[in-house]
């Protein structure tokens, strides 16, 4: 990671809500954070915490019943104010996304080179086909795929190769950010380990930022520079990975890290058992959304929302333990 951190994308008070039969549900609720240039930011959380919705919201890839609010600054432009045409140009060229299953993202009747050349020609219509093919060949070889595989169809490639093609689709237009949503989850453990190595190498070679959305905390520990932990639509904690693993501040992060099974064998070792289950977002708990499961719950947690504050340098946490508590107006009210 570069010494001086340059902010690539600045997300402020982002809320993504879906209209449902039971009313509006905010899958992401007032989240603010920055993504630095050239960093790998891991975004973890359990199912339903809003991590995938956040990734899709960043690209404005919402279904019609969903809407994004807040501000997402890319340089000095707010991409939420872009018109649809501007957004279409922005997507792919500046931010690209890879999904869990590359087989459903790639067109089964289109060859790999056609995928890549099409991406170039859509965004840079003046580029002729030969020049585009040259670029594609150079890129695909840097990705560790022989250029003679360009004439293959997606089903002829292995799972790991398909994911590398997906990453290439973003890199061929020099995207500055790749959002990888569970990109390694469907792969076997050995292939996954190799892809993780390659993603690190790609970051070093191309200087691209990667937002790695995953439920696999052990995997993120091996790849990310910083870690963001989400819980029930809110950012619980965000900070440099080594610092955060050594000293998690939020009680949820503490519990989450303690219940990850590890292969490092120790006798009589027990996993931490976190009580309860993640809440249903149609009826989120009042105050801090983690309070029903929190071992350190205080009266204020049930009433009021904490803010995301810098608990220790570079490490931000959304918990009343680390910020001054307001005077509760009527302490007897509970």
């Amino acid at each position: 990671m570069p010494e001086v951190k340059e902010v690539l994308i600045s997300i402020r008070n982002m809320t993504v809500s879906y209209e449902t039969r039971l009313g509006a549900v905010s899958a992401v609720d007032g989240v603010s954070f920055d993504i630095f240039r050239g960093e790998i930011l891991g975004l973890v959380g359990e199912s339903g915490c809003g991590k995938s919705t956040l990734g899709k919201g960043l690209m404005r890839l919402m279904p019609s019943q969903g809407s994004v609010h807040g501000e997402i600054f890319f340089g000095d432009q707010d991409i939420l104010k872009f018109t649809d045409d501007q957004m279409r140009d922005f997507r792919g060229r500046r931010i690209s996304m890879i999904f869990q299953d590359p087989m459903t993202s790639l067109n089964p009747v289109q060859r790999i080179d056609e995928h890549l050349i099409e991406a170039i020609q859509v965004h840079e219509p003046q580029t002729n086909k030969m020049k585009a093919l040259d670029r594609v060949k150079k890129l695909i070889e840097r990705m560790g795929i022989q250029s003679n595989r360009l004439s293959s169809y997606p089903h002829q490639l292995s799972g790991g190769m398909r994911q590398r093609v997906m990453i290439s689709l973003g890199l061929v237009l020099n995207a500055s950010l790749i959002v990888a949503d569970e990109a390694t989850t469907s792969l076997d453990v050995i292939v996954e380990a190799k892809l993780v190595d390659e993603i690190k190498k790609i970051r070093n070679d191309f200087g691209v930022s990667i937002l790695m959305i995953t439920h696999n905390i052990a995997l993120v520990a091996n790849i990310a520079d910083r870690l963001a932990v989400m819980y029930a639509g809110r950012m619980a904690e965000i900070g440099p990975i080594e610092q955060l693993f050594a000293n998690p501040l939020h009680p949820y992060t503490q519990g989450l890290l303690a219940c990850v099974p590890s292969i490092e064998i120790k006798d009589n070792e027990n996993l931490y058992k976190m009580p309860g289950e993640p809440p249903n977002l149609t009826h989120p708990p009042s105050g801090c959304r983690f309070h029903p499961r929190c071992p350190y719950v205080m009266p204020v947690c049930k009433e009021l929302d904490p803010k995301l504050v810098e608990g220790v340098p570079d490490q931000f946490v959304n918990c009343w333990l680390y910020q001054e508590q307001p005077v509760v107006n009527n302490p007897e009210s509970r």
Binding site: S158, V189, I190, V191, A193, I241, V260, I263
Partner: peptide, 25 residues
């Protein structure tokens, strides 16, 4: 040995160094 080495360890200080076997199953 490869299968065990490929399992990520939830500790950013213990990064895998062992190379992975070539190819896929």
């Amino acid at each position: 040995q490869a299968l065990l080495a490929a399992v990520p360890v939830p500790n950013p200080l213990l990064k895998r160094t062992q190379p992975m076997p070539a190819g896929e199953i």
